[in-house]
């Protein structure tokens, strides 16, 4: 192996210069949540399980007709998850509270993408097909997607679904927060607009967060003292309040730390300006050159000297 002397010093110089700047690149991780984004407050004490939100979602997003009609209440007998043909589903839970007639009181839970403040899916996406938009929605650009499904691995709520039965052009399917609709003046998400009881309140995230806190304060004893989505995984655009503990309603217990923080900190710490690979290249080059020299001196000194 023959290392060209000048070439080697060029590379080493670049390595040294770049290695000086790691500190500048490895800045502390900061949330990239948009400042004035929209959000939705879901008040589970209001939801009556009518599934109008599912129906509206299906209509405004042009999704295929369901096998069982939206008017059929027997659908609620099974627990469902959002899937590639429906962005949102309502499930019924009986956490154990009885009404005055000794009947179990149902609590209905609407599920959809939570539109995290710092979405794990957007951090994970290899091509940046998923992005957190200024208006708060986590937006999917099918034109960039390659179908690696790392977003689905990353999502702590297990929301993104996939068109597994499309052989060539499958899409990741999830709630869009009605991105186009809410981008317009006075536009509302389909589900929030149709909800007959305003179980879903749409507004700026800090507005609905204040509203949630106000409801907790104004109705002592009615709600559990927890706004789900205020702090979970660094906060979500969709937040929930409930009269029943969230653990009993199928909500996952999640840490407050934004999901992408650890991986992004490691990645940026190591690879800002590619300082570590360049440094490693320089070090290995140095070792290689030293060993090369030793070899040359030891073995065929004359032959190399001519070259």
């Amino acid at each position: 192996m023959n290392i060209n002397r000048r070439g080697f010093f060029k590379v080493m110089g670049a390595a040294g210069a770049t290695a000086m700047t790691p500190a500048a690149g490895a800045r502390a991780w900061e949330s990239a949540a948009p400042p004035d984004a929209f959000g939705c407050l879901v008040d589970l004490t209001r939801c009556i399980g009518c599934r109008k939100c599912e129906e509206a979602c299906n209509r405004v997003n042009g999704l295929p007709a369901p096998e069982i009609s939206f008017d059929d209440p027997t659908v609620l007998d099974t627990r469902r998850r959002p899937h590639e043909k429906s962005y949102t589903v309502v499930n019924r839970y009986f956490p154990g509270t009885l009404d005055t007639h000794d009947q179990l009181v149902p609590t209905f839970v609407k599920l959809q993408c939570m539109h995290c403040q710092d979405p794990a899916c957007a951090s994970a996406c290899i091509v940046g097909a998923l992005t957190k938009k200024e208006n708060g929605s986590v937006y999917y650009d099918v034109g960039k997607c390659i179908g690696c499904r790392y977003c689905m691995v990353a999502c702590p709520f297990e929301i993104p679904a996939y068109e597994y039965h499309d052989p060539v052009t499958p899409r990741v399917m999830k709630c869009t927060f009605c991105f186009e609709r809410i981008s317009k003046e006075n536009g509302l998400p389909g589900c929030a607009q149709i909800c007959p009881v305003e179980a879903i309140t749409f507004g700026r995230r800090d507005t609905v967060m204040a509203l949630a806190k106000q409801r907790l304060k104004d109705n002592p004893g009615k709600y559990v003292n927890h706004i789900y989505g205020e702090k979970e995984v660094g906060g979500t655009s969709w937040i929930y309040i409930s009269s029943e503990p969230f653990e009993d309603l199928g909500f996952p217990s999640l840490p407050d730390r934004p999901t992408p923080k650890l991986a992004e900190t490691i990645q940026h710490g190591l690879f800002s300006y590619l300082w570590s690979p360049i440094l490693l290249f320089g070090v290995l080059g140095g070792i290689m050159r030293r060993n090369e020299k030793k070899n040359v001196h030891g073995k065929d000194k004359e032959a190399r000297h001519d070259a």
Partner: peptide
Amino acid sequence: NWNPNSVLF
């Protein structure tokens, strides 16, 4: 389409 935040990238 680069996403420098993505480990997979």
